[in-house]
Nucleic acid binder design. Sequence first.
DNA 1: GGACTATATCCGTAAAAATGGATATAGTCA
DNA 2: TGACTATATCCATTTTTACGGATATAGTCC
Lengths: 115, 115
Amino acid sequence: MALLFQSLDDVTRLRILALLLEEEDLCVCYLVAVLQLPQSTVSRQLGVLKSAGWLKDRREGVWIHYSINRSLGAIQQFLVPVLRTFLLGTETARGDLERLKNLPREGGAVLPGTR
Amino acid sequence: MALLFQSLDDVTRLRILALLLEEEDLCVCYLVAVLQLPQSTVSRQLGVLKSAGWLKDRREGVWIHYSINRSLGAIQQFLVPVLRTFLLGTETARGDLERLKNLPREGGAVLPGTR
DNA sequence: GGACTATATCCGTAAAAATGGATATAGTCA
DNA sequence: TGACTATATCCATTTTTACGGATATAGTCC
């Protein structure tokens, strides 16, 4: 159980969760663009969230899309509403979502080379 | 918010919370005896939980009693039922509570020198 | 005051996590 | 096949956290 909370004790991971609670399905390149962090950092934290059971990934061509795992563990199911309520009000989450909204897109993907 | 989860990502701290969710009001010496950890470790983690807002303390003579803070923050209030539900079933919590039950007592205090 | 007890804090060390550039992997397109 | 892109993983370094013995603080009792 400590491990579960540990997966939530990092600002970057919470930012990712907040985004995926609102947007369902984002590819890594989006997240890199929105979070404005090095790709290796983002990928690593995505890996942590995935192995904690929060996220699942799905490859689509070159892109890998992450989304909230639909079959969360019992504790996580309790935590989702808490996260939704208290995370999305954050200034950080607000900024991230705003930045997401303004990303240059093409269909469902970030324009290649835009990063 | 990451800070709040951070206060829950340590096994010792969760053990302490589990005990105080069941027992309301325990002095440090009890906790040291039950957790079977060095006193400095227990005091340190109590300090973390206290400064995270989970606990409050009250001096009573030589003893300092800790208990769950009655005026928890909003997020914490949501988390308490989660902790109660998923923590108390644990094998660790079971063992700790059992050990607590079997401590030699006198009135409300551990027998002096028993530690 | 002095001996004793409970607790907090200090401090040097060890363990764990995060960081980010570099490299590896794997898919796409020509 | 080769060039290119997205992503994961590696690795050396830094930052954070935990640890626990030792010491300091503070209350109690004689």
